[in-house]
């Protein structure tokens, strides 16, 4: 069985693209439209990895990170943040919130698969 990944992005095109890329590489992908949706889904099922956008309505990625890290099954699983904001401030905030790593938008499918494969080994 492939590893399960929860991908969180409010942009449907990005979500579909990530989903398509990851599914093509054999991962099982669940999509969530924002932090709240992701949190709901993460509470129902424990994923092997979470890939989240930062800037989203309802609940943003940083808040989601904090919330997920507060859940026992998510204390140690990789959570990656996907962000157009490559400045150090955002990264520092992501790290403080408990992110494992980051992926800068715009990204290509190759770097997406690279970073995922590094943490799902």
């Amino acid at each position: 069985m492939g590893k399960t990944i929860l991908t969180v992005d409010d942009s449907v095109s990005i979500r579909q693209m990530i989903s398509f890329t990851l599914k093509g590489a054999g991962y099982e992908v669940t999509e969530a439209v924002d932090g709240q949706d992701a949190l709901d889904k993460a509470q129902r099922e424990t994923f092997n990895l979470v890939l989240t956008d930062i800037n989203m309505p309802r609940m943003d990625g940083l808040k989601l990170l904090e919330k997920l890290r507060g859940l026992t099954p998510y204390k140690t699983i990789p959570i990656l943040m996907l962000t157009t904001e490559s400045c150090s401030e955002m990264k520092a905030r992501g790290r403080d919130a408990g992110a494992t790593g980051w992926l800068v938008k715009p990204f290509n499918p190759k770097s997406l698969l690279e970073i995922i494969s590094q943490v799902t080994k």
Binding site: K75, T76, S88, K91, T100, S111, V119
Partner: peptide, 20 residues
């Protein structure tokens, strides 16, 4: 720390959970 990584399209935080 972040600066070095800014050149990379992606990266990991040291000591973060599940970081390689």
């Amino acid at each position: 720390e972040t600066e070095n990584s800014a050149c990379e399209p992606y990266g990991f935080f040291s000591g973060a959970p599940a970081a390689p």
